[in-house]
Amino acid sequence: MTSPITQLRDRINETLSSGSEDDTKSIREQSSLFQCRTCNTVYVAIDKTRCKDCDDAVEPVRATLSNA
């Protein structure tokens, strides 16, 4: 089973692949995943500090490779 974060990244990559290669590379280099630990919401943004749902702080999602 694929993790929710992997599914989200795959959907983002599919969306980005519809643009030009230069645009896609630029967006990928700038954007990151952020997660609110309170309500478990994940955001894709260049910079994010607060959750729009509960207004708690969000944290960057660390990029890790695992065979979960």
Rank of each mutant, 00 (worst) to 15 (best):
C51V: 10
T2Q: 15
S31P: 00
S20V: 04
C36I: 06
T49R: 15
C39Q: 06
S20G: 12
R9W: 03
D22A: 12
R9G: 02
E59T: 07
S18D: 02
M1V: 11
N67K: 14
R62Q: 15
I5S: 02
E14T: 11
Q7T: 07
D22H: 01
C54Q: 09
K25W: 07
S32V: 03
T38C: 08
A63D: 15
F34L: 03
R37M: 06
V61E: 02
E29G: 06
K52F: 14
V44H: 14
M1H: 13
L8F: 13
M1Q: 11
S3K: 15
R9H: 02
Q35C: 06
T6P: 00
V58R: 04
A57I: 05
L16Q: 01
D22I: 05
D23A: 12
T15C: 10
Q7F: 11
I46V: 14
I46Y: 06
R37L: 06
K48H: 11
V58T: 05
S32E: 10
D10C: 05
N13V: 06
K25V: 07
T2R: 11
Y43L: 01
T6H: 07
V61F: 02
S26C: 03
V44G: 00
E14A: 14
L16G: 05
T38H: 13
T38P: 07
A57Q: 15
Q7R: 02
V58Y: 07
Q30I: 04
T2N: 14
S26M: 03
F34Q: 00
T24Y: 06
I27C: 01
Q30D: 13
A57V: 06
N13G: 00
D55L: 14
N13R: 04
R62W: 08
S3H: 03
N40P: 00
D23G: 01
Y43A: 08
D47H: 13
D23L: 05
L65N: 09
C36G: 03
Q30E: 14
C36E: 02
C51Q: 08
T6V: 12
D47R: 12
S31K: 11
L65A: 11
P60D: 04
I12D: 04
D53R: 07
V42T: 14
D56V: 03
A68Q: 11
E59V: 13
D23V: 09
D47Q: 13
I27N: 00
C36P: 02
C39F: 04
N13I: 05
N67H: 11
I5A: 04
E14G: 07
T49A: 09
S3Y: 02
D22Y: 08
R37Y: 03
Q7K: 14
